[in-house]
């Protein structure tokens, strides 16, 4: 099109001025190759090192195992100490049961515990997903609109500083004993880190990239999709990791206040009956929910932003 005719014009001019000696087409090895590195030389002698080799599955497994053995060792030592203290009854068993007792409770009451775990898991996951979606939308609104920034930020902050535990009873009054108040609580508690990290991420876009996008004639949606959103992902994923662990807290607190099922409910029950093994089993399950969800978000992060500096060292699923 326009470009082509321009090209021709330019070539013509260049050729004329160089008294037709040099055609425009670059031929490696031709006289004018001295004035630049001809393509072939560049390919043969790249100025920087070759790309690092792609990690194979085997290497990944080794990295994974390597990142796991240290925390595993610490956990083993902890369990040994626990078992030692409890078995020797330095502390009475109704306060600190032995790992064996906890294991027995866990296995004999497994079907019950599994049901309650699923309830809490459901509340947590739904709360987290809603918080992530709402948080992201709010973050986009705040990052894109100065007016919405001024209007929403104080409210978001206000929602964050209200002690969630204090409004839990109110939620129960409003929404009854069902799942709703627990999910709302999980959303409320997990929402804030998503908004903060999302805003930070969206605002961290290099202004030159935005200038560039403008000269590319791209609309706001394309700029968001191709530049701003992927650029915000590392921040956002950090916020989501915090949020997912907080969502568990929200769900459990909701269950404390008024529930007929869920791990929080079981915890109160066990506490009231001085049933230490059940209480411990319950605690372990709650932590398991948090850990599993956290690891899932980490895996999502590894898949979404393998390019980011924080992930280049290798897939570490732990904080080693």
């Amino acid at each position: 099109m326009t470009e082509n005719s321009l090209d021709t014009a330019g070539r013509q001019a260049a050729a004329d001025e160089a008294s037709g000696a040099q055609a425009a087409a670059p031929t490696p090895g031709a006289p004018h190759a001295v004035d630049g590195r001809s393509p072939s030389t560049v390919v043969k002698a790249p100025p920087d090192g070759a790309r690092p080799p792609r990690r194979t599955l085997g290497r990944r497994a080794v990295t994974f195992a390597d990142s796991l053995w240290r925390p595993a060792l610490v956990l083993a030592v902890f369990f040994a100490a626990w078992w030692f203290v409890a078995a020797r009854e330095y502390v009475p068993n109704y306060l600190v049961p032995t790992p064996g007792q906890v294991w027995e409770t866990m296995t004999t009451q497994w079907s019950e515990l599994a049901r309650h775990t699923l309830v809490t898991l459901y509340e947590t996951v739904l709360g987290f997903v809603l918080a992530a979606a709402l948080g992201l939308v709010t973050a986009v609104a705040i990052a894109y609109s100065r007016t919405l920034d001024k209007a929403l930020y104080p409210i978001v902050l206000f929602a964050q500083v209200i002690p969630k535990i204090a409004i839990a009873p109110l939620l129960v009054v409003w929404f009854g004993l069902g799942l709703t108040p627990k999910i709302i609580l999980a959303v409320l508690i997990a929402f804030f880190p998503v908004v903060i990290s999302g805003v930070a991420g969206l605002r961290s876009t290099d202004p030159e990239l935005l200038d560039l996008a403008a000269t590319m004639g791209a609309g706001p949606w394309r700029t968001f999709r191709k530049i701003r959103f992927p650029n915000a992902l590392p921040h956002l994923m950090a916020g989501l990791k915090v949020a997912v662990t907080l969502a568990v807290v929200g769900a459990v607190v909701g269950e404390f206040v008024g529930a007929s099922e869920g791990l929080g409910y079981v915890l109160l029950l066990a506490n009231g009956n001085l049933d230490a093994p059940l209480l411990f089993a319950d605690l372990i399950l709650m932590s398991a929910i948090g850990i599993v969800l956290f690891v899932l978000v980490e895996i999502a992060e590894a898949l979404l932003i393998p390019w980011h500096a924080s992930r280049r060292a290798g897939v570490s699923l732990t904080t080693s």
Binding site: L6, D7, T8, A9, G10, R11, Q12, A13, A14, A24, A25, P26, H32, D35, G36, R37
Partner: peptide, 16 residues
Amino acid sequence: EQMNAELHRIWRETGT
């Protein structure tokens, strides 16, 4: 210097 030489060549070739 290399980039200068390359840019010069590209300019001659494209007429931009």
